[in-house]
Design a protein around this nucleic acid. Structure first.
Lengths: 110, 110
DNA sequence: CGCTATATGTAGATAGCCTACTTATGAATC
DNA sequence: GATTCATAAGTAGGCTATCTACATATAGCG
């Protein structure tokens, strides 16, 4: 999949992964891969800044911890984040409906 | 619908509209509105440059004509454009599958 | 004469994602 | 003991598609 395609939808994808419970960045990237059947392989340079952005927007709260000698920043969905996720899901439904209505071949051409 | 959401998918939408036959820019914008049930209202500053871009990429061919005293630039799908449209449709299918797999709430939480 | 619809376009700004690079530890391999 | 891989988190700089706002022009209506 061409990488740029997630543009505008990345936030929703990250929020959705965190709905299952807190995760750190690296684990979020792996969860995205797993859920997409390996088709979504986002570089760290995309995900980490996005997490910071979502934290600044108060949709996530992050906290440092040390696990096995390694620094981790674990992110948790805030209440606002949960609300934003619901909005993102609604946006996606509308968006995909619109795209399919336009993209689908014109009806009934023999 | 937030306008920026079509990013990365606009080309496919335009190509799909032109599959029905040649149209000029203004008519393309109207067709997009019509097919989307009014939810997709793209500004001219988005569509006209996109048409030029698609023409440069040889996916469309454009030609001037005068209708009712007004200048029109009518665009037609090229063979390459038809091919690109098929690719865009395949891309969309994969993309929407991936997004839905990630965005959909985790399965079977009681 | 002015307003609206039709019709095409440009200029400049924004922002999100990418590529490439940096830093660091633990575990496995040679 | 040295190298390499997996884990873990970031920054810097660039790209480019889309947006906002503006500019231009004709036809038709009141």
């Amino acid at each position: 999949m061409k990488p740029d395609a997630v543009r505008g939808h990345l936030d929703g994808l990250i929020l959705a992964v965190l709905e299952d419970g807190p995760r750190h960045g690296y684990a979020i990237i792996e969860a995205l891969q797993a859920r997409s059947g390996g088709r979504l392989d986002l570089p760290t340079g995309t995900v980490y800044p996005a997490l910071r952005r979502l934290e600044r927007a108060a949709l996530l709260s992050g906290s440092w911890s040390t696990v096995g000698g390694r620094e981790r920043r674990t992110y948790t969905l805030t209440r606002a984040g949960r609300h934003a996720l619901a909005g993102q899901r609604a946006d996606w439904t509308e968006f995909s409906t619109v795209v399919e209505a336009v993209l689908r071949p014109a009806a009934g051409m023999s």
